[in-house]
């Protein structure tokens, strides 16, 4: 199949401000487009979005498709998906990337269903490679890499026979890399022609709070897992974080157990972090968790199971019970740094 070499990124915005994940995807998309000798393009839907469209050039986009209308200020499934589908039908990009946000996970499957594209959720890496699959040689496929099935395997997914290869990626997974000397991109304005079906779902009211937890920029993170045992024991994790000036985080199991709130979840289905110091307490270290923290500068693993996989990515390890080690850590720390 002749496939177009262009890489598209859907730019998610709120009040004309893009979400970080969109620029992260542009940064990755630029490299994919370079490998393919294709063009990186952004799709910006909203209201008063011209400056945002220009901002995408700073991350390597050479063209921005903009669809600007007051009624498009907030994301709504029906008009957004219709616009995206029409653009994909008209231009058939080879790759289309979306943030694995609530908006991206609402929009991307609808777009993939319309164009019968392959769509892989929550990729932790994207690469371009020639692939031999079932004795057929394919040139320049998008390798969509993600942990699968309880995190015991890493799967590489391909969509060899589709016009458009689609993937979603969580915020923080790809690095944000603005260009030092951005080029001058082209803005292609597409008129918005409303259809009756666009307004079948209306927003009555909206309530947002700026996310107060910012794990991504925390220099020190103390994360607890299911192995911490109880909500009471999780207090030691919080105390240690407080003592050493870190943020509290948790594994998915800790979130599911109610030890910590979902906005503090580190891992494939949470936030990806790269702090100076990451202390993993009672976290066994399933691949989904490691995917979200293994690029930390220094990792300390504290676990009662000496064979826990978390030690495989740790620089320093302590085997033992968290409820004894953490108070000890706090005491010694205070003595040494008082």
């Amino acid at each position: 199949m002749e496939r177009n070499n262009d890489v598209w990124v859907f730019i998610e915005q709120h009040n004309g401000k893009a979400s970080d994940v969109s620029f992260e995807l542009l940064s990755k998309g630029r490299k994919l487009a370079e490998t393919l000798s294709g063009s990186l393009k952004s799709v910006v839907i909203g209201h008063n979005i011209e400056s945002l469209a220009k901002e995408t050039f700073r991350f390597g986009a050479v063209e921005a498709y903009t669809i600007d209308d007051q009624s498009l200020a907030n994301y709504r499934t029906m008009p957004y998906s219709r616009i995206v589908n029409q653009l994909v039908d008209a231009h058939k990009p080879g790759i289309f990337l979306f943030g694995a946000t609530i908006v991206g996970r609402d929009l991307a499957p609808r777009a993939a269903s319309h164009s019968k594209s392959g769509l892989t959720a929550d990729c932790t890496d994207l690469q371009i490679s020639d692939v031999k699959y079932l004795r057929v040689d394919y040139k320049n496929l998008l390798l969509q890499i993600r942990p699968a099935f309880g995190g015991n395997i890493i799967a590489t997914i391909i969509s060899p026979d589709v016009q458009t290869q689609m993937a979603t990626v969580r915020e923080g997974v790809m690095r944000l890399e603005p260009l030092e000397k951005p080029g001058i991109g082209k803005i292609t304005k597409i008129p918005y022609l409303p259809e009756a079906f666009d307004s079948i779902v209306e927003i009555i009211e909206q309530h947002r709070q700026e996310n107060k937890v910012n794990l991504k920029s925390a220099p020190i993170i103390v994360a607890g897992g299911y192995g911490v045992g109880t909500k009471e024991n999780f207090r030691f994790v919080e105390e240690l974080a407080h003592a050493i000036g870190g943020e509290v985080a948790g594994s998915r199991a800790a979130v599911d157990a109610g030890f910590v709130t979902p906005d503090r979840q580190v891992g494939q289905t949470g936030v990806t972090v790269r702090p100076k110091l990451y202390i993993a307490v009672g976290i066994s270290g399933a691949i989904q968790h490691r995917a979200g923290m293994q690029e930390s500068n220094k990792i300390i693993a504290i676990n009662s199971d000496a064979d826990a996989p978390i030690f495989g990515v740790a620089h320093y390890g302590v085997v033992g019970d968290a409820s004894q080690i953490l108070p000890l850590f706090i005491n010694v720390f205070k003595q040494k740094l008082k």
Binding site: A155, I157, I158, D161, V162
Partner: peptide, 13 residues
């Protein structure tokens, strides 16, 4: 359309 090209069991660093 999506195919599993390969699976790798997780090898610890």
């Amino acid at each position: 359309p999506t195919k599993v090209h390969k699976v790798e069991s997780v090898v610890l660093g």
